[in-house]
Design a protein around this nucleic acid. Structure first.
Lengths: 198, 198
DNA sequence: GGGTAATCTAGAACACGTTCCAGCATGGCG
DNA sequence: CGCCATGCTGGAACGTGTTCTAGATTACCC
């Protein structure tokens, strides 16, 4: 049982790890400038000093590349949040505040956010493992913010799922200019009410 | 103030209306068979008996075309639901049941659903008006199911928004194979609890 | 009915994601 | 050191969304 469906990633050499990093960095940079469509695979390859075929060996599609970028960014947020957790009495408020903080982080590079979220929602089944990973990090972010002293109840887990749905969808509507930040905050706060229900 | 941002659609002649219908029908048919990627603009044009340039005059992109298809389908569901509303004591349960019924409608043509939802979530700002229209229909579907006798309160509208977010996002996760129908039902029911809170 | 502007047609052309290939580099093993 | 498998390179090639053009058709107005 040492093999997983995804053919157990062989460990990368140092040079390979560096290439991977360079590619992710380039992708984020291009995305920051012009969003999803500005991330052009040929250009990513060239700027990363890597052949196109190699880029595709590391990330089998543009969507994979951008979803990996999102994983990266989210993990940074998660670390930040763990270092400086939101304080407050109410669990729901802490969760809403934490998500809004993450939101503002994304807002700082709106084009990058657009690229990553477009990729995330456009992803088909071939990317579901990676998308799932993103979802897991988000869920963990929420659970962290809840500050539980004991394992979450079934109801709490259900609420977390809805909050996560709200988070994703609100992000999408904000990015497409159909909702304001204030509206996003309200939506998140509404969803977080589910945490303090019996 | 007679002009809108979208240059006030000139009324279509009968032949034009027929063309539009033919195109939408073809798109839905191709989507039903092979999903998003099976809807190829050249093929849509050919099967609709229309030149490629004409297709693009009617629908300025593949995403516009599929979002329009979704509008169409949703309106059908809405009519059905108005003719045969879900019955039940609890407003939350009625809403959840109504959405699940719609869900099963989509499930009947999963590839079509995949195509429409991929388009919907991939849409950028240039499609936001059309996407907004879809969102408005969905919201109305929920409000209908609530069976209000008086105008909705601020809290109810907030809850409707979260339910809508949950609906969209749950749909996406189901389509990408990351959630079961049962899980979707649970998520919708959880979100609907917001309707019966004070 | 004739003239004119808008629309439609057929098809070429372009852009970008993706695939493929032939040969070079690298890294581990005898 | 020499060999082999794996990875990397440059570049061509393909598919599909989208744009463009020149000419035919249609719709509308007098």
């Amino acid at each position: 049982m040492t093999t997983s469906p995804r053919p157990a990633a062989p460990p990368l050499t140092e040079r390979q790890e560096a290439r991977r990093r360079r590619i992710l960095h380039t992708a984020a940079q291009l995305a920051s400038r012009g969003g999803f469509e500005a991330v052009q695979m040929r250009e990513v390859a060239e700027l990363s000093g890597v052949a196109l075929g190699t880029l595709y060996r590391y990330f089998p599609s543009k969507v994979h590349l951008l979803v990996a970028t999102m994983q990266d960014q989210l993990q940074l947020f998660q670390e930040q949040t763990r270092k400086h957790p939101v304080v407050g009495e109410d669990a729901g408020a802490r969760v809403a505040d934490t998500l809004m903080r993450t939101f503002r982080g994304l807002q700082r590079e709106p084009q990058l956010a657009e690229a990553m979220v477009r990729a995330l929602t456009f992803a088909d089944r071939s990317v579901s493992a990676e998308v799932d990973q993103v979802s897991r990090i988000t869920g963990q972010l929420i659970l962290d913010a809840m500050g539980l002293t004991e394992p979450p109840t079934r109801e709490q887990l259900a609420a977390v799922r809805v909050i996560e749905h709200t988070w994703h969808s609100a992000l999408v509507t904000w990015l497409s200019g159909r909702a304001s930040i204030a509206q996003v905050r309200i939506d998140l706060e509404t969803a977080c009410k589910l945490l303090t229900m019996d």
